[in-house]
């Protein structure tokens, strides 16, 4: 369980980091809470690690206006603990601090980063799903320039993203939507474990954005998926049946020793229903 040998670089600025990542076999190192265990198990053997730990510009939260919409920006190297306790983030997008508490234990959250979690794209991870549920976009940089991509498009499969070899996530941008309500529910073997199935529900206010509600599943399929809800059906008498039908319509449900197809669909249905109830029971976001 020792790390295989690798080259190590520690850039002090983003342009330098991009230069380093342009080299063959280089891989960015965020908090290391996902990558380092894989390396210890020798399931990952990067030739060079580019440690982003000294890039202060990738740490922190701020609010700004982007394309006419108020947004919360979070640097990719902001740790999960920092997100959990950040006042700006808590008030602008309250779901973030709530969902971060499902991830591992405090010691993992002290090191794990937001950008790392998105780039790792574990199908059972909470944050990629949260980004998708919240319509977040990732800012991406490389020597060739910078771009932005919706996280929904960025995550392409299990541990797969559309990121090129030389690219890194520099930050996440979350639209602030006053009136929105969110809920999350997950089933994990023990608190802090990866979810057997989880769901994030977003209920939109009627007067802004896409109407209605949507649920984003994680730990259910090869990547998080967002499904629009029929609020009346979901909230009605047969809500349980509605969510089970919804879960039964999902394709490519994962099977493993913790849950087979049938059980995972059931857990997904329960998680979605409970997340929906939590969202409806939670006060609308004020965005301030």
């Amino acid at each position: 369980m020792k790390f295989p040998p690798f080259g190590y670089l520690r850039p002090t600025g983003l342009p330098e980091a991009c230069e380093m990542l342009a080299e063959e076999g280089a891989r960015p190192l965020g908090g290391g809470q996902s990558l380092l265990p894989l390396m210890a198990l020798r399931l990952a053997r990067p030739r060079t690690l580019v440690d982003l730990g000294a890039l202060e510009e990738l740490v922190g939260t701020s609010r700004s206006v982007s394309a006419g919409e108020e947004v919360l920006e979070i640097g990719a190297m902001t740790t999960l603990s920092a997100v959990e306790h950040d006042r700006t983030a808590c008030s602008a997008v309250p779901l973030l601090s709530r969902i971060v508490r499902f991830i591992g234990h405090p010691a993992i959250r002290h090191r794990g980063t937001l950008g790392g979690s998105i780039a790792h794209a574990d199908p059972a991870a909470e944050l990629p799903a949260a980004c998708i549920a919240l319509d977040a976009s990732a800012s991406i940089a490389s020597r060739r320039g910078s771009r932005s991509e919706r996280v929904e498009a960025l995550v392409t499969g299990p541990y797969q993203t559309s990121l090129r070899e030389d690219e890194l996530v520099t930050g996440l941008c979350f639209p602030i939507r006053p009136g929105r309500r969110t809920g999350v529910w997950e089933v994990a073997p023990r608190p802090g474990d990866f979810a057997l199935a989880g769901a994030i529900c977003v209920v939109y206010p009627e007067h802004s954005g896409p109407a209605g509600a949507a649920v984003t599943f994680f730990g259910v399929q090869a990547k998080p998926s967002r499904v629009t809800l029929d609020v009346e059906g979901a909230a009605g008498e047969g809500g349980g049946r509605y969510f089970q039908d919804l879960a039964d319509s999902l394709e490519g449900v994962l099977e493993d020793g913790h849950a087979d197809d049938r059980f995972r669909r059931r857990l997904a249905a329960v998680a979605a229903r409970r997340a929906f109830a939590a969202a409806r029971g939670c006060p609308p976001e004020v965005g301030a």
């Binding site: 790390f3 190590y8 520690r10 190192l29 290391g32 809470q33 380092l36 265990p37 210890a40 440690d51 730990g53 603990s81 405090p106 010691a107 993992i108 002290h110 090191r111």
Partner: peptide
């Protein structure tokens, strides 16, 4: 577990150089 600055972390999931 060790404290790095004031935070408890897993020292097996941290490179010494970090």
């Amino acid at each position: 577990a060790v404290l790095v600055d004031e935070e408890a972390v897993r020292s097996c999931l941290m490179l010494a150089v970090q």
